[in-house]
Design a protein around this nucleic acid. Sequence first.
DNA 1: CCAAATTCTTATCTTAAGTTAACGTTTTGA
DNA 2: TCAAAACGTTAACTTAAGATAAGAATTTGG
Lengths: 201, 201
Amino acid sequence: MDTLTALNQFREHIQTFVPLTDTEWQVIVPYLEVSVLKKKKNFVEPGKVCNQIGLVVKGSVRFFHVKDGEEITGYFCFENEFISSYKSFLTRQPAINYIQALEDSILVTLNYNNTQQLYADDLVGHKMERIYRLVAEHYLICYEDRVTSFITQSPEERYNKLLETGGEVLQRIPQHYVANFLGITPVSLSRIRRRIMKISA
Amino acid sequence: MDTLTALNQFREHIQTFVPLTDTEWQVIVPYLEVSVLKKKKNFVEPGKVCNQIGLVVKGSVRFFHVKDGEEITGYFCFENEFISSYKSFLTRQPAINYIQALEDSILVTLNYNNTQQLYADDLVGHKMERIYRLVAEHYLICYEDRVTSFITQSPEERYNKLLETGGEVLQRIPQHYVANFLGITPVSLSRIRRRIMKISA
DNA sequence: CCAAATTCTTATCTTAAGTTAACGTTTTGA
DNA sequence: TCAAAACGTTAACTTAAGATAAGAATTTGG
């Protein structure tokens, strides 16, 4: 995928929720960067400030923590999803997590300074605020659902829900990542899967 | 507390993260409403679309779900915090939760239509987008932390962290609400408390 | 002011998840 | 291509949490 295709895909994605004129797009483009993130390479690392918000235009990434030497997966992102260690990006504090490519991936990124400049721009500032308001609101809803599932559902219920709705995650992601995404161990997920198989068999 | 005091407190709070000129404030004020929410009264109910974002200027509220006849508490909000069932507010779908006053409370609210009108206003639209972008980002960070705690910490670790940082919640809130905020049962929290007492004794 | 409801703790029992380890299979990369 | 690493399942054991119930202390509302 070339740079132009990546940028166009970024524009297309933005336009699914905020229309952009060609004039506005021409203002925004110079602030964007296209970058390749090879499998296993980090977009964010603990101890470093996350300086970008990226849109995955190709590939997939995994967000995870390391605790007691163990990797604990928070979530995954696929094509047309924004990634960032938001807390770090927004507060300018060092991140406490990794964001790492699961496959060779292509990202369109906007760094912190450029973001602030675009917010301050007379022509596109209002629209950029809107875009990133909507992005934040979108992920706010995702997290709201996630927290709800943790307090109202058992691990088995969470897995069943994922079976219904999260097809992509389950097909593209190793099971032990899915397990700690669900808040459980791989062993435990394996047991849940067996239980479900027996019921449906 | 009278209406004027409530509105001024709203303005003061907004100005902690976005400055407002008097002119801008005069544009915004007519869209705001001040409302009293008596203890145990609902700000949001399942099945109804949440039509407001509110700022708690006095009192406190509790966000909870009802599952199998049981109330499961998601979180609490105190003075100078925004409340809404964001998913419902943003998507215009019926809410699936309650938001209920824990004490007699006063809220400054902005309803959905007024929010959209303010976003579209030439004078304050840009700033309103910014304000609600920052609000969404703030709560996004809160939820990010919350999810992180669920996947990386045990209930006991979560409670210890709450002891360190969440003084207000622990002083003003019945323990069984805190328990399901932590994702555990009241009985389980009681056991954790005993364990901690023994260690520190 | 007092009865009813709520809250918290404790105990018992049950159930589910964590831990560790072993084993076969698949994937990876040198 | 082939050895090493990663992955998923299973088993045995340990640990912690859920469910239920009872009882004491506190709070609430009429």
